[in-house]
Simulated scan of single mutants.
Amino acid sequence: MIDRFTVVDGHVHTFSSYEVAHKIMTAFNKVYNIEFTNPGTGAIDEVLQNMQEMGIDFTVTANFAPAKIIHKNNTWSIEMARQYKKIVPLVSFHPDMEEPMDKLMEEYVSGGAKGIKFHPMAQGFLPYDERLEIIYRMCEEVSFPVVFHCGRVSNARINNYADIENIVPVIKKYRKIPFILTHMADGNIGDVFKIADMYENVYFDTSIIITGYPPLLEVNEPSWPDNEVVEYVIKKIGADRVVFGSDFPWGSPKHDLARFMEMKLSDAEKSMILGENAIKIFKIKI
């Protein structure tokens, strides 16, 4: 908790050990030509330590993986949430998964999964792939949240699968699913305004675009370094549509939280962004 605000970091990537974290991050940073120094590793021990030191009450683990290891990755995320009650696990799917996705979905939800994270560009599939229909229909029935990585990664775009025009067809079709578009819809203010106006079931997370981490601000083209721009966008679409997220270990929750606390937003607006919206969307039990 920070200054009376319950804090939920709605976008964090976690790994089972420092060795695994180093291996994955080194490969990811090479593919996406990431030029800045990462503020951490994402090892689960480090994430838990950050929470304690920074006053973060809950962390949403937005993990994803290739088709061959995605089930193992999902079960590990759920197990971490069983061990650490302040961890809120998301699971992921891939059209190439061999296991029946509806059965896995039932297993994950009964195990404690609170939502789904898709990274179409990194995972290599289009959001509207018909093989994912069963998952979207199940999410629609119970308003189960879906988080989409939206746009580029550190100015790199290896395919267009995560571009907004490929995500909107899914949003348009499933109006009862709470969708979160990460990185403020790739930092395109026009898209944020348009989508917020057209689709009441869409939220936006602050990660990377509204960063307070200086090395990231210097190299990430879509980021919004001007607080007045951030404040304008939030007041335009409403603080109830924005979810705080750091994208740790690529973003820095410490720097991002410090920046938000300095913004000219009301306590009610900060409370919604820093925690209340995520608590509602992911049905986090306080």
Rank of each mutant, 00 (worst) to 15 (best):
V147L: 14
V142H: 06
S92Q: 04
R137H: 11
V146K: 00
L132N: 02
N159V: 04
S143H: 03
R131D: 06
I164R: 09
L104K: 10
V109W: 13
E107T: 15
A156Q: 13
R131Y: 05
H149W: 06
Y161E: 02
H119L: 11
A122N: 12
E130W: 10
C139L: 08
Y161R: 07
M138K: 10
S154T: 11
M101Q: 07
K117V: 00
K103Y: 07
E107H: 08
D129R: 00
E130F: 11
Q123M: 14
G111C: 10
E133S: 15
P100Y: 03
L104R: 13
R157H: 10
Y128F: 15
Y136E: 12
G151F: 05
V147C: 09
G111D: 10
K103H: 09
G111H: 05
R137S: 13
E140N: 12
V142D: 07
E98C: 02
A122Q: 11
D96C: 12
S92K: 05
P120R: 06
M97V: 08
I116D: 00
M105R: 02
Y161M: 14
Y161A: 13
Y108G: 11
S110G: 02
V142R: 15
N155F: 03
A113Y: 10
S154F: 13
E140F: 05
M138E: 14
D129T: 03
G151N: 01
H149Q: 04
R152Y: 06
H94P: 08
N159K: 04
P127Q: 09
K114V: 06
D102W: 01
H149T: 03
M101F: 10
E99L: 13
M97Q: 10
I164S: 14
E106I: 09
I135W: 03
V146N: 00
A122Y: 09
V146M: 01
K117M: 03
G124Y: 01
A122L: 06
V109P: 08
I134T: 09
D163C: 08
F148T: 07
N160P: 00
L132S: 05
M97T: 06
I134E: 00
N160V: 06
V109S: 10
K117Q: 01
